[in-house]
Design a protein around this nucleic acid. Sequence first.
RNA 1: GCCCCUUUGGCGGAAUUGGUAGACGCGCCGCACUCAAAAUGCGGUUCCGAAAGGAGUUCCGGUUCGAGUCCGGAAGGGGGCACCA
Length: 876
Amino acid sequence: MAMERYNPKQAETRWQRIWEEARIFETDNDSPDPKYYVLEMFPYPSGRIHMGHVRNYAMGDVVARYKRARGFNVLHPMGWDAFGMPAENAAIQNKVHPRDWTYANIDAMRRQLKSMGLSLDWSREFATCDVEYYTQQQALFLDFLAAGLIYRRNSKVNWDPVDMTVLANEQVIDGRGWRSGALVEQRELTQWFFRISDFAEDLLVSLDELDQWPEKVRLMQKNWIGKSEGLTLRWEITDPAEAGGATDIEVYTTRPDTLYGASFLAIAADHPLARDLAAKDPAIASFCDQCRRAGTSLAALETAEKIGFRTALEVVHPLDPAWTIPVFIANFVLMDYGTGAIFGCPSGDQRDLDFARKYNLPVTPVVMPADADAASFVITDTAYVGDGVMINSRDLDGLSPDQAFAQVASRLETRTLGNAPQAARKTNYRLRDWGLSRQRYWGAPIPVIHCEDCGVVPVPVADLPVKLPDDVTLDRPGNPLDHHPTWKHVTCPNCGKDARRETDTMDTFVDSSWYFARFTAPRHATPTDPAVASAWLPVDQYIGGIEHAILHLLYSRFFTRAMRLTGHVDLKEPFRGLFTQGMVVHETYRSGKDSKGEWIAPAEVEITEIDGVRTARHARTGEPLVIGSIEKMSKSKKNVVDPDDIIDSYGADTARFFMLSDSPPDRDVIWTEAGVEGAHRFVQRIWRLLGEASANLEGVRAGTGTGGVALAVSRSAHKTVKAVGEDIEKLAFNKAVARLYELVNTLAAPLSEVAAGKAEPELRSACKQAADMVVQLIAPMMPHLAEECWKMLGNTGMVATTRWPDYDPGLVTDDQVTLPVQINGKKRGDLTIDRNADQAAVEAAVLALDFVRAATAGKPPRKLIIVPQRIVNVVI
RNA sequence: GCCCCUUUGGCGGAAUUGGUAGACGCGCCGCACUCAAAAUGCGGUUCCGAAAGGAGUUCCGGUUCGAGUCCGGAAGGGGGCACCA
């Protein structure tokens, strides 16, 4: 019987409509079934989905459909991370309103996502720029403000001169704005901050409990939080008059053990003492200015020399009143870490050593490797930073650095200088508070009012939302809300006097820090329905790109803690399982020979392969092209493949299946035309094999084979059910795919027999069962094809609402096992024996094997290792 | 500079976590169908060798009856942080 080729276009739209009409993916918050929350990082509505989205959402959908089939009440929502700069840029370039641009993009992308056949609960959809969403975000802001989790302070900020906005530290990459790429400048502004640093310790220790997160992400967060344990230590100034009355300088150190190696103190150019000195001394003032200027770009820092200015000040060594040490102002000391002052121990720190060599300061080794010789150990041009034993440190000599640390710390803690302890143990974190103010239009307005008399007045909850005005001019630099004619002029809610609205909006990372909670009750009148949110959360499986390993994930963890303190949820960690998927990459092509030519899109390239050498030509002009490296799909390199084109020519199932095959999901996947075609061949193969057999399977009851081919068919089917389930649980989609190929290959011959009408009833019955299983197993990955085949096989209902098949444990283990037999660790043959054969039986059988007898020459082996059901090793 | 990960056929990758290396896919080769091609089906495909056999998981060394897997060192590739005291 000739089968027609499977027509995905027609079938896919039909099933998408059927699913939608049956509303089977809309989730009931009151279901008695156990919950499972699977979430993919929601997209920014840039206008079109890309292959990275396809990969991300295909993975999430496999999990969602699988868990649903396993009897879970699955929450699988979708929304839009819709505030942000690109909308404003588009508005300036194309003269469209950011709102119109954003919502038009959302409509286009929603249509694209729907064409993928994702099992999403679209009834919960929202965009973060919806008034309803940011109203609730403003309510959260007010609660956080009342709880002391937000504060305002004057601070030096990273200013992006192109986007005309402030950037968080995390948004500055190599000294440039993460979006504009412009060199970031330093400015003083009054900004709002989240007190994320108050949570540093909790955010750090809780990482240990996130055992379903990639180790790599946990490590990156750990490094980002950057805990260090040390000592703050005050050094007495010998001549307070010279220091403008200051009596001591406080430094922060993690190495008090190296105190006897100290040869200078250095303070930041912005240190109060440096400012005092600068006010009196023009040379110091100009040096400090130089430091600040150089400090504006990190790029400059990389090459910047360590420079210092030796002041007239000297300080007394804490452990020896007769010992004084010079004080420098240095460009490498940061005012906002520790105390803005350090002591330098050149022998134990490379940077201090370079500085000491430059300014001819003493270099005394104080730690040496345990096996070195104290008399001859010297530091030349490399500092010794390792562990070992103390030397040249008087009473500390012979101790380990750890012991020396403890001794110095406890000695100086109990000593007083002035009327306070000279030193205190202190833990420091690199993590800074999160500045959330942005001087932009397209973001959630910060709901406060500035009154001359009352100060900062929160907008009363009853007055929310603070809505963005529609009529704005965006083609002027600066903050559009600030130069709106009327919007900011309000009366003070407290005293009724004229007052001014806060014109800053919130960082878009705020929007994405709690959307997962909002999905649990997306239309609720408060930010969350606490009972519902606490029941659904944490997200059981969160899937997205590694690029959010620090920013978004750390902010969300902070937000969940803050929402807990303000009663919106009852948990600390928002994401129990995290999976970071790899990128979709593609070969690049260029015209011309010298790799300076234009980039050419894959759709225009024709590849030919002769004797393993691939050459590329332009499909239209025939011009030879250079095949370049494989890189992340990007518009600039034109190596993008449009999901729409692929879905149009191969169907969504093929696109989804290919994205799940071949590469492990956490690694990059190379998009190749050949790979897609392979996936599509499999779609057609399943359709043809099942279709041709289906006529002879009509009315056949599914059953398990008991012997011969029928038993073999049932064995492979049941084994595959077990394996695919386990692989999906582990998100090892590539392995699940391989299992499916294997099963279909095994079923090809028996199904052909059925199609030819030559199969016995038992084989037909086993084939019907196996065919049903194949369909159920492919359903999470290729849901449309699965529905189509399910119907063709005469089944009722939808696969999408069918329970996952059970396997018979008796069928997944074979009665006989084939053990490899090694002689001295080299495989020399096999032994097929009863699975449950005991040690003695295996031993006897092994020794009876011809090649074993030949090798042992009648003598008993020196050793016989039998690993049950695994392997045998005969040692002679 | 510091920290982390990674290295398996022509290619993407499997290998029950110390037990038959190369599952599955791509590519390639052969055969069938066809006047022919495409499509499809069947078979082969780590390397050397006609075969018997031997070698083989980046390299060097170690532990073990047995190492892709564990330990020590080197090299290549990728990523994160980066004046953090």
